[in-house]
Simulated assay, not measured.
Amino acid sequence: MNGRLILSLLLLTASVVSFSQEKSPRKSKKHDAAITEKGLIKVSVMYPFAEGKTFNMEYYETKHMPMVAGFLGSNLVKYTIEKGLGSGIPNQPLPYMAIGTFYVKSLTEYQAAIAPNRDAIRADFANYTSIAPVILVSEVVR
């Protein structure tokens, strides 16, 4: 083989190896996230959209959710906040204005932490929304 062909093959091999190494961690991180969340308890607090109802996202993000997260202590793995943008069906109304989700290790510990703080949590609703939330408790399967 001539020198140029060998050099080209070496560069091609190096590019393929580099590309595959670059892609592999992204897949494994996503896969690892699914593994670490499996079995967790997910508490979704959903705020349905309705004409004339209000929701203060800044307050929810900076005050309410951190307050509730503080009650959950080490049982809390993570929490997320979602702002509704639209429906999955074009030209249909927004189903939820916002969704707050807590991922916890134990439902029993979650309930024990929330029970004595329920009144404080409910009283805080008036500071950010006029919507009664819908709450779904589920187990992460995957």
Rank of each mutant, 00 (worst) to 15 (best):
A123G: 15
S130V: 06
A14F: 04
S106K: 09
L11T: 03
G70V: 08
E109G: 06
I41Y: 04
V43D: 01
R26V: 08
G70M: 11
L76A: 04
I131Y: 11
V43Y: 00
I135C: 09
H31Q: 03
Q21S: 13
S138T: 13
G88I: 09
G39D: 03
P25S: 09
L12W: 11
L9Y: 05
R26C: 05
S20V: 09
L76V: 10
Y110C: 08
E51S: 12
A113Q: 03
K53R: 15
L11F: 12
Y103R: 03
E22F: 15
I131S: 07
L7N: 13
Y59D: 05
E139A: 10
Y79D: 00
T108D: 15
F102A: 06
V77L: 04
A115G: 05
M97T: 13
F102R: 01
G70T: 06
T129H: 12
M57N: 04
I121L: 08
S44V: 03
I121M: 14
L10H: 10
A69H: 02
I41E: 00
Y103C: 01
G86Y: 04
T13F: 13
I114C: 02
N2Q: 09
I35A: 04
L9N: 05
M97G: 00
E109K: 15
R122P: 00
S20Y: 10
I131E: 09
